[in-house]
Design a protein around this nucleic acid. Structure first.
Lengths: 352, 352
DNA sequence: CTGAAAGCGCTTACAG
DNA sequence: CTGAAAGCGCTTACAG
């Protein structure tokens, strides 16, 4: 293996100088720098990142930690589970952003709980943590909040001494969705909503209410249907809804997510109801699938790139500010959402 | 941070003894071992894996390297690209198996090519590499074959001094698929096949031919249609096929993969042809989606768990045999495939 | 069975 | 601008 020792010898300098040159220190003469560069190239030298991590007490690695409800599940294990579809979509950007920042992505194998969980991450000298906590009650999440390691959460509104979060403007998104329907003449608007005990679901529910109130429409709590985040449950809930209600008793549905909307569409279709002729449907997220539903789904776009860019940027600034004893910026980032109009929404059917 | 020094002091032994106890050396007295255990627990000690990696010159990390055609693409970037669907499905098992073996999974950010690519992996002291090379011509793949790092490829028939591979019995699978159709009375069987210049595609094509020959049926090369691995291309190719051929000129289609079969089904459906009434269709892979196609797809199952288990097992035995100067087992693993009969195949329509 | 010492490959005050 | 030295936290011959 080629070490800095060999580079130093070839360039006729000490290892200290090689190290300085490598790390862009200004305290290296132009000639020395040049000779070192040449030696590095001719020897094909690459610094040993493990040794660097040891002495710096930090590696160029960011751990990706997902906490589903289930303790045992892993990052990839939720492939195909519709309730997590959006986050998996997000990982694409995560990987790219982290690579662009020249960090590695680590998926830690962690059979640990709470206290030891953090310690095991510390012992890997991860520089930072990107966490997606579907289940904020997980004790590992709480441990993370008290840890020294810079952490950015996505969608869990969790802040700590060394952690912050990024999320979409869920409230405003849901408000836009509902407002869009109101502008199309809808008045009796059902919402199929999930996780109202969590930050995402409750914000979306509030947005729905707000839009109605702003339009001076009554908020009928009977029109709020609780469901799970996945397609199947949304499908079942819609079936129930269709049994309970007369056709013209409502003319539109705001779904809690796109994958839920897909279940809604299926149930409506099965009951012979036409979208948007009989019922308009709006989703949330704007996952790729929206384009291919029948009909293509009007939805609220969450700006995944902006979310991930924001998260990684914050994370890296937290990591690097530690070095310089700056106060790191810990304010959360809220990313704007945007209505994407496709074919699943239309004018309210006129009352007969 | 708690170090082995502190554990040693508390237990009244030297760091060397702590290290031995930790690594299960037999050369530690029962009493010492006990005191060390207690100290570890009471201090909440966790060894520094970075320091361990440095001195052992190896970390407990396995790198996951995917090589798509495109140099720039990353692991997650192929989400939603139908031609890679099977491999993404595979990653679920990869993550679990690696975690079960108590290794971490690293997704290296590698803007390097060839020579430096290997070196950067070496400098991370990865223990082994799991590689999926859709594009075996990638120069990084060649470099990997000559590297010191133990490597297991999935589906690229690449062996080197420190590498081997695992793959399904693609030939036999395709043979089974075709045989199944023959037993149902089909004689004019089209195959829609991809990548016949690669190991997977060519094995599947050979299996198709073999089944026909074994049944004493003629092999009509006109019935072999080349396509891409993705749904869209398979769809287009089937459209072409349907323009070229009379309805009864063929009664069954063997698709190169499930995702291709989905394109085939769509094209047949669009032409008003009934499956399996008019045409029987067989896929390959048995991805989760097969259950939800209309009709549910008869296919050849690749045993993903067995593939991944085999791969990880081989990899770990390669990693660990190095230590003991055993000759590592480098023979490839071929996993049997199995016909799964669902509803897309049926008796051949009788000639009128 | 145990400990003192050397060493893994790097970085970073410190002194010049 | 540069080098000698100490040190990051561990493991492993070596000697006893």
């Amino acid at each position: 293996m080629v070490t800095s020792e060999q580079v130093a010898r070839m360039a006729g300098v000490s290892r200290a100088t090689v190290s300085r040159a490598l790390n862009g220190s200004p305290r290296v003469s132009a000639e020395a720098r040049k000779r070192i560069q040449e030696a590095i190239i001719s020897l094909g030298y690459e610094p040993d990142v493990v040794a660097q991590s040891l002495v710096r007490q930090r590696s160029r690695t960011i751990a990706l930690c997902l906490f589903y409800g289930d303790q045992k599940s892993t990052v990839f294990s939720s492939f195909g589970e519709t309730q997590h579809y959006f986050y998996l979509d997000l990982l694409r950007d995560v990987e790219q952003e982290i690579a662009a920042a020249r960090y590695d992505l680590l998926l830690p194998s962690s059979p640990y709980a709470a206290k030891n969980y953090i310690r095991s991450l510390q012992m890997r000298h991860v520089a930072g943590i990107l966490a997606i906590a579907m289940n904020p009650a997980d004790e590992r999440v709480k441990a993370l909040l008290e840890a020294e390691i810079p952490t950015v959460f996505i969608d869990s509104l969790s802040q700590g001494r060394n952690s912050t979060y990024v999320t979409s403007d869920n409230l405003d998104g849901s408000r836009q969705a509902t407002e869009h329907l109101i502008q199309l003449g809808h008045q009796r608007i059902v919402t199929l909503i999930s996780g109202t005990d969590g930050p995402i679901g409750s914000a979306r529910l509030t947005g729905y209410r707000q839009a109605l109130q702003q339009a001076g429409l009554p908020v009928d709590e009977q029109l709020v249907y609780a469901s799970g985040w996945n397609t199947e449950e949304a499908y079942q809930t819609t079936l129930t809804l269709l049994q309970e209600r007369q056709p013209r008793d409502f003319t539109a549905i705001v779904a809690g997510s796109d994958l839920m909307a897909i279940g809604v569409l299926r149930a409506l279709h099965q009951h012979g109801l036409h979208v948007p002729g009989d019922v308009s449907v709006v989703g949330f997220d704007d996952v790729d699938l929206c384009r291919y539903t029948e009909p293509p789904l009007t939805t609220i776009r969450q700006d995944r790139s902006a979310m991930v860019q924001g998260a990684i940027q914050r994370l890296i600034s937290m990591i690097e500010s530690e070095d310089e004893h700056d106060a790191p910026v810990l304010s959360p980032i809220i990313i704007p959402t945007q209505l994407i109009t496709r074919a699943s929404t239309g004018s309210a059917a006129l009352p007969e």
